[in-house]
Design a protein around this nucleic acid. Sequence first.
RNA 1: GGCGCUAUCGUCUAGGGGACCAGGACGGGGCCCUCUCAAGGCCCAAACACGGGUUCGAAUCCCGUUAGCGCUACCA
Length: 405
Amino acid sequence: QGANLERHQQDAYRMLESGAAYRCFCTAQELDERRKAAEANKEAFKYDRRCDRLTTEEIDRRVAAGEPFVIRFRIPEGTTEWNDLVHETIAFPNKDLEDFVILRSNATPIYNLAVVSDDIAMGITLVMRGDDHISNTPKQILLYRALGAELPVFAHLPMIHGMDGKKLSKRHGATAVGDYQHQGLLPGAMLNFLALLGWSPGGDREVMTIDEMITLFSPDGLQRKAAIFDPKKLEWMNGQHLSRVPLEELEPRVTPAMIAAGLTTPGDVEARRDWYMSLLDLLRVRARTTDDIVRQAGPYFLDSIEYDAEAVAKNWKDRSTAADILDATGQALASSATWTAEELETTLRALAEKKGVAAGKVFQPLRVALTGLGVSPGIFEVLIMQGKDLALKRIGDAVNWLRAG
RNA sequence: GGCGCUAUCGUCUAGGGGACCAGGACGGGGCCCUCUCAAGGCCCAAACACGGGUUCGAAUCCCGUUAGCGCUACCA
């Protein structure tokens, strides 16, 4: 830090000595007043270089008197232009630039000096940043030249705007990346989504892994237009990644939330890892975030469940009918020997036929008994994931609950 | 105000003079699949900002207008 500051100061004084910069004794208040006056007259304010006209004696006298000063960079005549990696040629007439401060009166550097000085020191060859820095670029180029350094290549990427069309920033629409992670978004999905705002591999390619994006990348695909951040598409993108990512990769991103929700423990996950993995595989299909997975997971871990009012109203409309069908279902299932999807299906469909009702009239009440919800993965998969003991217990509980009410 | 950047469906975009009465995706609507919900499949509505050029021919090239955004500090 101290070494950097020292270098910044040295660079500023180097420009002062070479005549590329000069001391300015105008105070912030004075400048502010002149700026306001100009604004009142509807004139564009630009520093009038009055301190550049000071005589050497005058400057020496004021410095010796301990008067505070800043160092200003003197904009030369001409035009400053560069070949931007994404915009091609961008040119600024120097007359529109003003003699900007590079070193404050407290001897600390202003941003433009600091970046240039640092980038030179670090040997930076490519500067990629947001479009909002385009107007800083001519000033920085002039600084590179005054410092006798080689220019890096500049690439100005489009901004990302919020749904209101305004620039997203610390002050506007800021969401910490950690928040997105807590919302159950996968890093790969976030990166994929963000990459597509401002870049396209060409063609119709959209869902990509990080490695794929890297191999597909080319500056030609860089966009010039600002993009609007659409949370809906981000969510969709996350759902895509959720279903495609290898299970082993997904597991560590879900388990902490599962544990935090009190559904399981590290030891439990370890003990029945195969079962746990197939549960994740089953639930991720209809999830858009890892949080969705956690929300759906309750019925497979908890001892007892709550019945969703809506699901009950819809699928257990008539309590005694529901209790009877569930009772019969429980009995049919109890005699199942293999507990495989095929056998379960055969058993339940046979039951429906025997009762003279559509299969759904058996499946839906069962779904509520098993999960408490009207929505879940396929009923046979639920039965298998829960296992015979738990499933039969759930059915028994449901029958009791229905007959008690 | 000055300067700069940008301009294809609501949104992200493909497109680089004829292959475009403009393709894909999100979102919306409908259908199929189906034990529910997703996923998946199929279909529909939806765009080249405007005006001038250049050219045999412009979404594509040039100019202007308009609009949006950005910058305009002893902030970064």
